[in-house]
Amino acid sequence: MKLNLYEDKNNIDEHVDIYFSNMRPVIRRIVDTVNSDRPVLSGRPADEDLDDGEEIILSPEEIYYLDYVDRKLFAYTQNGVYRLMNTLSSCEEMLWNYGFIRVSKSNLINIYKIKLLKPDMNMKVFAAFDNGERICINRSYKKSFNEYLQRMRRMG
């Protein structure tokens, strides 16, 4: 994508024009950034020893997957695990354009962070991440997962 930046010290009407062929996720992300609608998740370290009471801002790009356990939502990143105050369905809606797709009742995964997709001998399909974690892709979500990948490829 070509990027033109024009600096004018006297400009009092700053604006952004976007020329695009179709509204694909990357364009949607730019629009979100310009509108300040870019999803930002805030969480606190899940490990109580590391929790100093301050919330940490998480960017969608750094999250590997979200896990909903015991009515609590956790975000897994390279640096650690954070507890979020959002619901899984709100995150699903919010992060759709950022590569996140639901793969089970309790998991939302970031497809940009998947290192390998592989079935085991029991025919369960697992998504392996850089951090060594694995998440099972439930059979019920297989179709929507595949449709999402096809869509992301077409739109990408």
Binding site: V26, G99, I111, I114, L117, K118, P119, N146, L149, R153
Partner: peptide, 27 residues
Amino acid sequence: YYYYSVFSETKKQDILIKEIQENKQKE
């Protein structure tokens, strides 16, 4: 056949993911 299709479909999806990741890096 189902066993084979699970492995074959997963392989295709893995290739698709790599392609999506490469496209994102290019952008």
